[in-house]
């Protein structure tokens, strides 16, 4: 099979996997068996893509001299493969992967040693009484739930591998265009719909540094179910992260966005080329931050944020290729 055919097959897999990721997030975050099947498929496809890219680097041992000479010449397909491989193994993606692993470990720490959130009085006065009730009740133990931890891992790992897939596929202009055509309008419309259907927060407060670690994964759900009035008022995605992962988790998520933002900034100010996609990515990231802080929490909102993330990753990935585009 030729290089372009294989690339087409992989981009098809990329689309289907990203769409199924969205469906899984929106339908049920705790559907563990579905997440497991998804992760197994994702790991197989990701690993096969990695091997496909690395075959340009490796050569089988040749005994005949003409074969050796021929194999030392780089073909066009080999050049393309090396280009994609170098980009997808670059420093910015490495930093992102490292941050993902740190985030996973932080989530585990928060669930094993839950913070006494009874003292979170600064967030909202009404919370304190409720938390006191919860923590005096010894039968209620939210920390270290198998379901919560595993689904959290599954989401993080799939974000990691999906981002890598999109990264390596964003060499083709067609893939970028299709992604923008599908996900960008859906993202913008989703943000508007979320605004009108679920609304924005009435009260936004900056959490204190006093509560560095959170109260463990999965605590936000009972809080929101037992306080529907508060959930309709002032619990944004940012606040949910603050309850579960503390100050560091809530603000630390923006470090993930800092990497593509710095790349976009570099392109716009220093490199001065292919600026349109960098502008699109920058605006998307700023909308994601806005939604994260000021929109009310809902699982559908998570799906919308994921769409924005796909657009960002595609705009981010194409920026580092040495040659402009392979497929036109």
């Amino acid at each position: 099979m030729s290089f372009f055919t294989v690339e087409k097959i992989f981009s098809f897999f990329g689309y289907t996997l990203s769409l199924s990721f969205l469906l899984l997030i929106v339908s049920d975050l705790n559907s563990l068996s579905l997440w497991g099947v998804f992760l197994i498929v994702l790991s197989f496809i990701g690993f096969s893509r990695f091997l496909w890219l690395i075959t340009a680097k490796s050569r089988a041992s040749k005994t005949r001299l003409p074969d050796q000479i021929l194999s030392s010449l780089d073909t066009e397909a080999d050049k393309n493969k090396t280009n994609i491989f170098k980009r997808s193994m670059s420093l910015d993606y490495g930093l992102f992967a490292l941050l993902i692993i740190v985030g996973a470990l932080w989530g585990v720490y928060c669930s094993f040693y839950p913070n006494e959130i009874a003292s979170v009085k600064t967030v909202h006065v009404e919370f304190s009484e409720f938390f006191n009730n919860i923590y005096n009740d010894h039968n209620f133990n939210i920390a270290i739930r198998n379901n919560n931890l595993l689904s959290y891992f599954a989401v993080l790992f799939s974000v990691l591998i999906l981002s890598w897939l999109q990264f390596s596929l964003s060499v083709s202009k067609k893939f970028i265009r299709n992604n923008l055509v599908i996900f960008l309008p859906a993202f913008l419309v989703g943000v508007v719909i979320l605004n009108f259907v679920f609304g924005r927060v009435l009260l936004f407060q900056w959490p204190d540094t006093l509560f560095l670690s959170g109260a463990g994964l999965g605590i936000a759900k009972p809080i929101m179910l037992l306080h529907p009035d508060l959930a309709q008022d002032s619990i944004s995605f940012f606040m949910v992260r603050f309850f579960e992962l503390g100050f560091l988790g809530a603000y630390g998520a923006y470090v993930f966005l800092l990497i593509p933002l710095s790349v976009f900034f570099h392109i716009i100010t220093i490199r001065q080329r292919r600026k349109t996609l960098a502008y699109i990515g920058m605006i998307t990231v700023s909308i994601i931050i806005m939604v994260d802080m000021f929109w009310l929490y809902h699982p559908h909102g998570l799906g919308v944020i994921a769409m924005g993330w796909f657009v960002t990753v595609v705009c981010w990935g194409q920026s580092g290729f040495k040659t402009p585009y392979i497929l036109r």
Partner: peptide
């Protein structure tokens, strides 16, 4: 080394997936 690291990453992903399927 890179190949080894990436292989470990993908195997880890699959391991988490298998855990997800069989722990429920």
């Amino acid at each position: 080394t890179l190949l080894l690291c990436t292989t470990v990453l993908f195997m880890l992903t699959m391991f988490v997936g298998v855990l997800c399927v069989f722990t429920q």
